[in-house]
């Protein structure tokens, strides 16, 4: 487990919408509790730069993308369902 590479997470938000804010705080809390030191979070505000949505083909906001490790995974919503988030962040063999 200690040799596990950091997960690279990209969270797409839309400025300060309630769901965007909730997703940011939920993601930070979950990562601090369950993946301490093993994650990188990049928050992308699509309100400031909507074109960045193209990279991961984002339609609904907020959406969390697990870039690494591959395969890429998407979790749509404010990440308030902690179990669902953890299931999607982990690989089957973790």
């Amino acid at each position: 487990m200690n040799q596990e590479k950091p997960k690279k997470l990209v969270l797409y938000v839309a400025g300060q919408t309630p769901k965007s804010l909730a997703a940011i705080s939920n993601l930070r809390r979950i990562c601090e509790e369950h993946l301490p030191g093993r994650y990188e979070i990049d928050v992308v505000d699509l309100r400031e730069n909507p074109k960045l949505a193209r990279e991961h083909n984002i339609v609904a906001i907020p959406t969390l993308v697990r870039e690494l490790p591959v395969p890429l995974r998407k979790i749509i919503g404010d990440l308030s369902d902690e179990e669902k988030v953890l299931v999607n962040l982990r690989l089957e063999n973790e």
Partner: peptide, 24 residues
């Protein structure tokens, strides 16, 4: 998943418009 999330109110913003000129 996207449709379900929209339907169940899990998102509060959408990216709409043409792909070369998307809007939030």
């Amino acid at each position: 998943d996207t449709l379900r999330a929209i339907r169940e109110g899990e998102v509060d913003a959408l990216v709409v418009g043409r792909m070369d000129q998307p809007q939030v």
